[in-house]
Structures are given as C-alpha cells and as structure tokens.
Computed example of a mutant assay.
Amino acid sequence: MASQDWSDSESVGSSVAAPSEVSTVPDKFGFLGGAQYTDESEEAVPVEVIRRREKKWLEMFSRWDSYMLKRYKKVRDRCRKGVPSALRARAWQHLCGANKQLERNPGVFNQLAEAPADPRLEDDIRKDLHRQFPLHEMFLQKGGHGQEDLFRVLKVHAQVSPDEYCQAHAPLAAVLLMQMPAEPAFWCLKAICDKYVPGYYAPGLEAIQVDGDILYKLLKKVSPSAYKHLKKHKIEPVLYMTEWFMCLFSRTLPWSSVLRVWDMFFCEGVKVMFRVGLVVLKYGLRSQVLKRCPGMYETLQALRNIEHGVMAEGFLLFQMQRLDLTEDDLQREHQRQVQKRRQTAKESGAAAANGR
C-alpha cells in the first residue's frame, strides 16, 4: 500500500470491509462487530519484532525520565511504530504521567469511588454505561465488571471535575479500561482532560470550536477540493469533527487504528488528532465521493460513513506520515484562530458598550 497513490481512487482500501453482522467469536481485541471490529486478515507484526520492541520499551521504562528529557524523539518514533500490546497500559501511564499521579495519591481513587455522590449525577452516568462499545465483550453485560468499573471511573472523574463532566468522557474511560484497571484508567482520563485537550469539555465547547476552525483552515492546504466543497455548502467544522476530537476517534476508527492513534496521541498530543482528521477528510471527501454529494445532507452522510479502508490501520497511518503539514503550520494556524477569536470578542464587547 505504501507505494501506491490513492489520491483519487475509488478503491481506497476496498479489500477491507466493515462487518455488517455481529459475530459469535470476538476479534483479537474483544469486539463482536461494529465500526471498531478488526478484520483478522490484517497483516500481523512478526513475533520476533514484537519481542525486540518489548525489550526496547522495558529498557526505556527503566530510565524513563532520562529518555523523555534527552531522547524524546526515540520515544516518539517508537510510539509511531506502535506500542507492544503487552506494555501498552504501562506506556500510556508513563507518557501522560498517570503513574506518578497514582504514586502521589495512594488510595484517593478508591476513597472517592466509595464516597456518596449527587444521586442525579450517578443516575446520569448509569444512563450512559450501556452505550459504550456495547459489542465489546467487556461491556456486554449490564452490571458486569466492565460496566461497573466504567461507572466508578466516571463517578470519580465527575467528582474531581464537576463542571466538565459530559457523555464524551465515557468512551474515553472505556478505551482505557480495556487496557488497564480502573484506578490508573482514572488518572489517565484526568491527564487527557487536563493536559492534552484542556477546555474540550467545558461549557460552551469553545476549545473544540477553535480546533475545528484550525482543522478547516489546514484542510485548505491538504485538500483544496474538500475545503472548497465544505465552504460552498457552508458546512461548519463542529457539524462533523466534534465527536471525532472529543472522543479521540474512539467511536470512529477500527480498533487497531484507535490503538495506534492513541499510542501517538499520548506521546505527541492533540496534533495527532488533526492529522487523523485531515486524512479522513481528504480521502473521505475525495472527488469521486464529492460527485455524489450535491448538498450539506449528503456530505454529512458521507462523513458519517467513511469507507472502512480509509480508516484501516495501514492506510491511515501511512497517509498521516505523508501529509504536507509541519509543526509550524499547526502552531501558526492555532495562533491565528486564537487571535481572531480575541479580536471578535473585543469588537463584540466594544459594540455592546456603545449600545448602552
């Protein structure tokens, strides 16, 4: 796949199809079907390669602070190659600092999990449990250990961040629980909300709107045709990217892709989300698709039903690396959008003052 140019092909990843039926046998990640189901025919990494990578990661863990300070690019490159599944929980905790938070706050999670909370809050959380990856074997059973651990993580998170709790926290917590126990999952979730995407879940969702505008402007450079189409039909970014970014693509991509994206996200931050979003937009709205999208409705439907091959692990990650997008591009556009919003707020304030 790496040697082919799929820039305008009708057959992007056509050999990989999303399963339409629920299986009685889970895939290697525990899914019985749905968008996250991973086809077992996907190319596997040789065992000897996995073992070599595991040894390298174990060596990094033994000198973690030194690696992060002096050899960060090595850590980044190994995250981009994919964290070995046996060490993924440990790696994510180290990358986001959850391991240190857990050490500094022994017993805090369990205390908060057992403490009484607002009954209305608990009721709201309970209502969300069955919606989280219902085709994953861990969350199939109402009242099962998966749903109960999910409840505990969300309850504690809502107690420490009462102004920011929203439904988008549930899939994030569920992804983490598939990798690790409830206590470290909580600290990872807190790190995501506080350090990686601050403001995403605050009332008004301004941070998401800013990042949506950044994504939209970057698309102009990456795929002018998709950008022009969205602009022509006045399709605002928040209409299609809100769930992508707030749920870190966990409800959009097949699971093998989710894990690889999260490996990079925990190392490099939100810029990984922009790269994923740009690839999905570029190939999900390539010219052959746009011909079938005469208006806003058809375009949004196309974005809700991206061809499975576009999101398949091999294709997605290769195209993310190929994007003509630098760190400076992201930083400059972020500064532009923040400045633009400040100016708009300033003008609005002046107009309101003059109208008194």
Rank of each mutant, 00 (worst) to 15 (best):
I125A: 11
V108N: 11
L121C: 04
T252N: 15
E298S: 14
Q339F: 03
R251C: 10
T299L: 05
E137I: 13
L323W: 04
V108E: 15
L248S: 04
R292F: 01
K28M: 11
V45M: 13
S250T: 13
M1G: 14
G30Q: 05
P134S: 11
G199A: 06
S62N: 04
L140T: 03
A35N: 06
P203Q: 04
L95I: 06
A185C: 09
R336H: 09
N305S: 14
L135P: 07
M246T: 10
E307R: 11
A117Y: 00
L102S: 03
S7D: 15
P224C: 11
K271V: 06
F315A: 11
E333F: 01
F245D: 08
E59P: 00
K217G: 06
K74W: 05
F245N: 06
N105F: 12
L253P: 01
P181S: 06
S223T: 02
C166F: 01
F186N: 05
D324T: 13
Q288P: 01
F29G: 09
P106C: 10
E236T: 10
Y165K: 10
Y201Q: 12
W57G: 02
L177P: 02
D77V: 06
E183P: 09
F151G: 04
R336G: 02
K55W: 00
D211E: 15
E122A: 07
G349E: 15
R322I: 06
K228I: 08
M296W: 02
K282W: 00
D328S: 12
F274H: 15
R90M: 13
H308Y: 15
F265C: 07
K220P: 03
E347M: 11
K155L: 08
L189T: 05
L230G: 12
E243P: 03
R90P: 03
V279R: 10
V261G: 06
E307P: 04
C267V: 00
R63H: 14
G277Y: 04
A2K: 12
P116K: 08
R78Y: 10
V222K: 05
A2M: 13
S287F: 05
N305M: 05
L325N: 03
E236W: 05
R63L: 11
R341S: 05
L87S: 06
V258D: 01
E114P: 00
M264I: 04
Y201C: 12
I192R: 00
A191I: 01
V47R: 09
K340I: 03
F133M: 10
G199H: 03
Q321M: 09
A113K: 07
K282H: 02
V175G: 00
V160E: 11
L129F: 03
T326Y: 08
F139H: 08
I235S: 08
